[in-house]
């Protein structure tokens, strides 16, 4: 089947372009324009905020550790464990995240709540929750796997460099100390404690299975 053929015009160099001299002057004009624009901005202190206006004319540098480009809400950074209202982790140690993790970087040691705790029987809690951030591939599967919205990657932080490998292994306290981009340690999703309205009330011991 004969397709439509678009005949491209072969670019022709004019004598002015071929002689190069005029083009050099033009190029110098462009760079000089930018030079004076940039210098003017630096001297007068009128440097545009590259974070807020990335397409503004002139200096476009973001001085990284001091200024940061905001990340998208869904950008996957270093993990955090979300808190309940009483400050304990939302995590119920179901091991979904460590099962989903393709890099096998999550280790959870589940524990039973002590006798008399109202959560006992309904859910467990992580005695240890360790993520090896060096192994992590930041795929976000753990976040998707979590049924309790207990693990999130919305801290907006890069993995920073440390001097020794052990520093990259984040334990439960470290993960619980992280805050989201908006500064909260909790999650927007509601959480129903056992006994509250909205809690299904079914558990391993009392649910009949």
């Amino acid at each position: 089947m004969p397709g439509k053929t678009k005949v491209l015009k072969k670019p022709v160099r004019t004598i002015g372009e071929q002689s190069y001299l005029l083009e050099v002057v033009k190029g110098l004009g462009t760079t000089l324009k930018h030079f004076f624009q940039g210098t003017g901005q630096m001297v007068s202190g009128n440097v545009p905020d590259a974070v807020k206006h990335p397409l503004a004319e002139g200096i476009a540098t973001i001085s990284y550790p001091e200024e940061k480009r905001p990340y998208a809400e869904r950008w996957r950074g270093v993990h955090r464990l979300t808190h309940r209202d009483d400050g304990s982790p939302r995590c119920v140690a179901c091991l979904c995240c460590s099962t989903a993790c393709p890099a096998q970087c999550i280790y959870i040691k589940p524990g039973e709540y002590p006798e008399g705790d109202k959560r006992r029987g309904y859910e467990r809690y992580p005695v240890e929750f360790v993520i090896d951030e060096l192994r992590c591939i930041f795929c976000g599967f753990c976040v998707e796997a979590c049924p309790c919205d207990a693990i999130r990657m919305d801290t907006g932080m890069h993995m920073t460099a440390f001097d020794e490998k052990s520093a990259f292994v984040y334990d439960k306290d470290k993960l619980m100390s992280m805050v989201s981009q908006h500064g909260t340690q909790k999650s927007e999703n509601p959480r129903h404690e056992p006994g509250e309205a909205g809690h299904p009330g079914i558990d391993r011991l009392r649910g009949g299975h």
Partner: peptide, 10 residues
């Protein structure tokens, strides 16, 4: 510094 100014850098 000059090259930085020309290239919209600091």
């Amino acid at each position: 510094k000059q090259s930085a100014m020309m290239q919209n850098r600091i």
